[in-house]
Simulated scan of single mutants.
Amino acid sequence: MLKLFRKVRKQLIAEKKVSNYLLYALGEIILVVVGILIALAIDNANEINIKKHKEQIYLKGLKEEFETSKTKLEQLIAFNKQSYEDSKKIIAFMVDPDKNPSEQELSNLLYNAFAFDISFNPNNSLLEEMINSGSLKDISNPRLRILLTNWISNMDDISKQETMLDNERQQTIDMFRGEENSIKTIYDLTGVSGELGIPLNSEKTSNIKLLESKEFENNMLMFILTSIKTETVHYDPLMQSLDEIIMVIDKEIKE
């Protein structure tokens, strides 16, 4: 095509046809401009396709992370609920002293209430990498970008609440560090001693007298309140946020 234009140009110059030459020159300029625009369009199309492909990779990775985090949160909510429900059973025995539990039953309740830390550890590695590298802008859905940004800030609030809960838990556990109560009895009767390879005591110190302690009751009540608030004010809304994030991601993923 260019060779043809050059040949025509030489012929027009040789024939001194100025007006025709100007038309030719204009046509050549238009051809060059059109070629540039086509090249830019191709480059833009390629860039858009690369960006979309990158976004799909991010979306699929985020979906996997958030589905794993949802499973963890479901398990944590179940642990927390068992913890405060068994704590409420202990309080019920304290309210009605005529219905004292057996040492075995009390040990089981105390173990279920206080043996496990309540701490949410979501899978955020990809999301944090995206935020740190500025790749969050590659997510085209504005609502999803807002949800992902809010998710990180929610983690700070959750961590603070869990610290409060752990403090209340430790206040109650500390009552077993003195001479009057026995962690060993709980270990023996719940099978923990066997798991740890610790010999059983032939005579066990009873923890039933804890049910008469006003300090223990106060600690338990604060623990129960904080546990329930952790679930209703923090974990339940967090689960709703998780569900919305996963739903939006599913809509954005192109199979």
Rank of each mutant, 00 (worst) to 15 (best):
S140Y: 03
P142D: 05
L144F: 02
L144M: 05
L144T: 00
R145I: 01
I146A: 15
L147A: 08
L148Q: 06
L148D: 03
N150S: 09
W151T: 07
N154K: 09
M155Y: 09
D156G: 12
D156E: 12
D156I: 14
S159E: 11
K160G: 07
Q161P: 02
T163I: 13
M164N: 08
M164F: 11
M164C: 07
L165E: 01
D166H: 14
E168N: 12
E168V: 02
R169H: 09
Q171W: 01
D174H: 11
M175K: 01
F176S: 05
R177L: 15
G178T: 05
G178E: 04
E179I: 13
E180V: 13
E180S: 15
N181S: 06
K184V: 04
I186K: 00
Y187E: 12
Y187H: 10
D188A: 05
L189A: 11
G191L: 02
G191K: 00
V192M: 14
S193Y: 11
G194T: 14
E195A: 15
E195H: 09
L196P: 02
G197W: 04
I198H: 10
P199T: 07
P199G: 04
N201G: 13
S202C: 05
E203R: 10
E203W: 07
K204E: 06
T205F: 10
N207E: 02
N207A: 03
L210V: 07
E212A: 13
K214A: 15
K214E: 15
E215S: 15
E217I: 13
N218E: 02
N219R: 08
M222N: 10
I224N: 02
I224G: 07
L225V: 11
L225Q: 11
T226I: 09
I228K: 11
K229D: 15
T230L: 11
T230W: 02
E231L: 06
V233I: 14
D236C: 09
D236Q: 13
P237S: 14
S241G: 11
L242E: 08
L242R: 01
L242P: 02
D243Q: 06
E244D: 04
E244S: 00
I245W: 00
I246V: 15
I246E: 05
V248I: 15
I253V: 06
I253P: 08
